[in-house]
Amino acid sequence: MGNVAVIDLGVANVYNVVKALDGYVVSSPRQLREAEKIVIPGVGNFSAIAERLDDFREILVAKIQESTPILGICLGFQILFESSEEDIDLSKNRGLGVIKGRVKRFRKIRVPHMGWNQIELTGESPLFTGIKTGDYFYFVHSYYAELEEEGVVTAVTDYGQKGKGGFYRFASAVGTGSVYGVQFHPEKSGNIGKRLLDNFRRIEGRGQ
């Protein structure tokens, strides 16, 4: 099924992701060369991750061109986009820009969006084999992705109540080519989360 490299971006403990995927931790870009699958986990803030990822940018772009399956989780999902309102440096787009769109802050609603929420599947994705609309995943985030092209969205989630303060229907999962992203934390989402990570582990990269 291919080895899975989990990028260590600093503060967060990546043990749960590593264990669930039977992966290994990498902390330098060089270690990514041989990776057959890559996970970008995410806890912290966009600026810090953008800085840490700078060294990985070149190799990640190369890996994406090779069609290596990549999964971004939470902030690792947000970094797939072009930019974020959370970034202290907005002079240039510091996201990876794999997916067109930007990350914006929730407003007029309780922030962070924290807890278990449902997904609604909107597109085909091998990540969701055995997973259905209405299943609950664990979310913790204050920012959400606003996409330019809806075609890459594979699941959406509602936050808030229509007609009662803020209401958001945001992209909770995306997929384009070999790149996947989820706004929630599968490694914290019990059995259903384990299933999603297992699905990622089973995805065939090109040339495997």
Partner: peptide, 28 residues
């Protein structure tokens, strides 16, 4: 952290940034 797959929070007597970061790094 190794035993469960749902979120958990830790606290009690934490008084410095270093202690807080160490608990997060430990897996909370």
């Amino acid at each position: 952290a190794k035993a469960i797959h749902i979120p958990f929070m830790v606290g009690g007597g934490l008084s410095t940034v270093e202690e807080i970061v160490s608990v997060i790094k430990a897996g909370a």
